[in-house]
Amino acid sequence: MREPGTPTIDQLRVFVAVVDAGSFSRAAKELHRTQSVISYTIANLEAQLNVVLFDRSKRKPLLTAAGQLLLADARSVALKVDAMRARAKTLSEGMEGEVSLAVDVMFPTATLVRILECFQAHFPTVGLRLRIEALGAVTQLVLDGVSKIGVSGWMINTPDAIERQALGSVRLVPVAAPGHPLAREPAPIPTAIAREHTQLVLTDRSTLTAGSNFGVFAMRDWRLGDLGAKHALLRSGLGWGHMPEAMVETDLTSGRLVRLVLAEIQPVIYPLYLIQRVEDPPGQAGRWLIQQLREQAPEVARPS
Rank of each mutant, 00 (worst) to 15 (best):
residue 228 G to S: 15
residue 2 R to M: 09
residue 225 G to L: 13
residue 133 E to C: 00
residue 37 V to A: 14
residue 154 W to T: 05
residue 77 V to H: 11
residue 296 Q to D: 11
residue 65 A to L: 14
residue 281 P to H: 10
residue 258 V to P: 06
residue 144 D to P: 06
residue 267 P to W: 07
residue 234 L to E: 02
residue 133 E to F: 01
residue 165 Q to L: 10
residue 236 S to P: 11
residue 236 S to L: 15
residue 20 D to F: 03
residue 278 V to A: 15
residue 78 A to V: 15
residue 247 M to N: 02
residue 38 I to E: 03
residue 126 V to L: 02
residue 48 Q to K: 15
residue 194 A to V: 03
residue 8 T to A: 07
residue 141 L to D: 08
residue 226 D to G: 03
residue 10 D to K: 08
residue 150 G to A: 09
residue 217 F to A: 13
residue 127 G to H: 13
residue 152 S to P: 11
residue 108 P to K: 08
residue 265 I to K: 13
residue 240 W to M: 07
residue 283 G to V: 02
residue 44 N to D: 02
residue 174 P to Q: 00
residue 182 L to P: 03
residue 245 E to V: 11
residue 95 M to W: 12
residue 270 Y to F: 15
residue 68 Q to H: 14
residue 57 S to M: 10
residue 304 S to C: 01
residue 160 D to C: 02
residue 301 A to W: 01
residue 217 F to R: 13
residue 97 G to S: 15
residue 303 P to G: 07
residue 212 S to F: 12
residue 141 L to Q: 10
residue 140 Q to V: 04
residue 143 L to M: 01
residue 131 R to W: 07
residue 150 G to D: 02
residue 238 L to D: 06
residue 244 P to H: 04
residue 266 Q to I: 09
residue 144 D to R: 12
residue 161 A to K: 11
residue 113 V to R: 15
residue 278 V to S: 13
residue 24 F to K: 07
residue 64 T to A: 09
residue 292 Q to A: 01
residue 189 I to D: 09
residue 180 H to T: 02
residue 77 V to R: 15
residue 22 G to E: 02
residue 166 A to C: 05
residue 117 E to W: 11
residue 32 H to Q: 13
residue 2 R to F: 07
residue 115 I to K: 10
residue 178 P to N: 12
residue 198 T to K: 15
residue 25 S to F: 03
residue 263 A to R: 14
residue 10 D to L: 06
residue 155 M to Y: 11
residue 9 I to C: 10
residue 127 G to V: 06
residue 35 Q to H: 04
residue 52 V to I: 11
residue 156 I to A: 12
residue 289 L to I: 06
residue 66 A to M: 10
residue 244 P to W: 02
residue 14 V to E: 03
residue 35 Q to C: 08
residue 45 L to R: 09
residue 269 I to P: 09
residue 193 I to W: 06
residue 67 G to P: 05
residue 76 S to Q: 14
residue 92 S to N: 14
residue 100 S to A: 07
residue 11 Q to D: 05
residue 41 T to W: 12
residue 192 A to Y: 00
residue 215 G to S: 07
residue 223 R to I: 02
residue 197 H to S: 04
residue 257 L to I: 04
residue 46 E to P: 04
residue 250 T to N: 12
residue 286 G to A: 00
residue 194 A to T: 06
residue 62 L to I: 08
residue 104 D to G: 06
residue 77 V to Q: 14
residue 173 V to Q: 07
residue 122 H to P: 05
residue 154 W to V: 05
residue 298 P to S: 08
residue 61 P to C: 03
residue 244 P to A: 02
residue 153 G to P: 00
residue 106 M to P: 00
residue 300 V to A: 12
residue 264 E to G: 08
residue 182 L to Q: 10
residue 106 M to A: 13
residue 94 G to L: 09
residue 179 G to R: 04
residue 289 L to P: 14
residue 210 A to L: 15
residue 150 G to F: 07
residue 15 F to C: 10
residue 74 A to G: 00
residue 160 D to A: 02
